[in-house]
Amino acid sequence: MKEIVVVSGKGGTGKTSVTASFSYLGGASVITADCDVDAADMHLLLKPDFEYSEDFYSGEISSIDQSACIRCGKCAEVCRFDAITVKDGVYRIDPLRCEGCGYCSRVCPAEAIVNKERLAGKWHISNIRTGGKMVHARLGIGADNSGKLVARVKNEARELALEERADYVIVDGSPGVGCPVVSSLSGANFVILVTEPTVSGLHDLKRVYELVKKFHIKAGCIINKADINPEQHQAILNFLAEEDIPHLTDLPYDGQFTQAITTGKTVAESGSVRLKELLSACWEKVKKLTI
C-alpha cells in the first residue's frame, strides 16, 4: 500500500478536483482521505454515505465550576488571552478566546477550573460512488485545524487500506505551510504538487516544496490553467528543472473544470475529452513514480 499526497501551498489551484479525479480513476483500489479539513469539499464530488462517524477532540478548553469558584479572580489575572471575563462577580471563560494553555487551572486555589478536551468536529468513514472508501472530517467553527486531526484522518485511511487491501491511499492535503501540512506529508510515498502560473503560484509552490524536500519525499508537479500566462508557466518549468521535479502534466484553463464540479462529477469522468486524457495519462505516470 502506497500513500500519495496532493498539496498546493495556496487555495483555488484545483487541488481537490485533481485529487477526486485520481480517486475516481483508482476506483476500488484507492482509499481517499480528505485532509483539507478547513475547506473539505471532496465529499461533494464523491458522494459519501457517512457509514461511520465519530466525534473528534483536539486540544483542551478550560471551564469554571461555578459552585466551587471562590471568585478570587486569580484565573483572570494570569490569562494572557483575555478569555476570562467577570460580570457581577461571576467569572466565565469565552470558549472562542481560550487557547487551552491550562494556566488558569494551575493557579486556581479552589480547584474550580476543569480542563476538558475540546470538541473540534467529527470525522467519518464512507463508501463512495467510485467503489472505494473515503475518510473525511469536518471542523467546528473556530476550531483550529491541527496536525492531530489530519494525522487521525490519515491513520484511519491507512488502516482501512490494509483491511480492504487497497493499493493506494490518496490524500487531499491541507493548504498553507503550517503544522497541518506537515502532518499531511508525514508518511507519504509520493507528493503531487498542484500549482498555477500566477504571480503568487510559483512563490507558494516553492514554499511548500521546501517542506516536501525536508521530508525526503519524491514529488511531481501538475500545472493547472497552464495556458493563462506563458511567462509564469516558463518560470515554473525552470524551477521544476532546477529541482529535478518531474512535470506530470499541464492542464488547460477550461470551463469544463468548473462544469464537472457543478454536476457533482470529477473532471476525470465528465471533463472534456482532452482533460480526461491528460488526467488518465497523469494518473498512470503517478503510479509508476510511486514506488
Binding site: D38, A39, L96, L139, I141, G142, A143, D144, P175
Partner: peptide
C-alpha cells in the same frame, strides 16, 4: 481563508 481562529 477558512473558518478557523485566524479568520475569527
Amino acid at each position: 481563508p477558512g473558518t478557523s481562529c485566524p479568520v475569527i
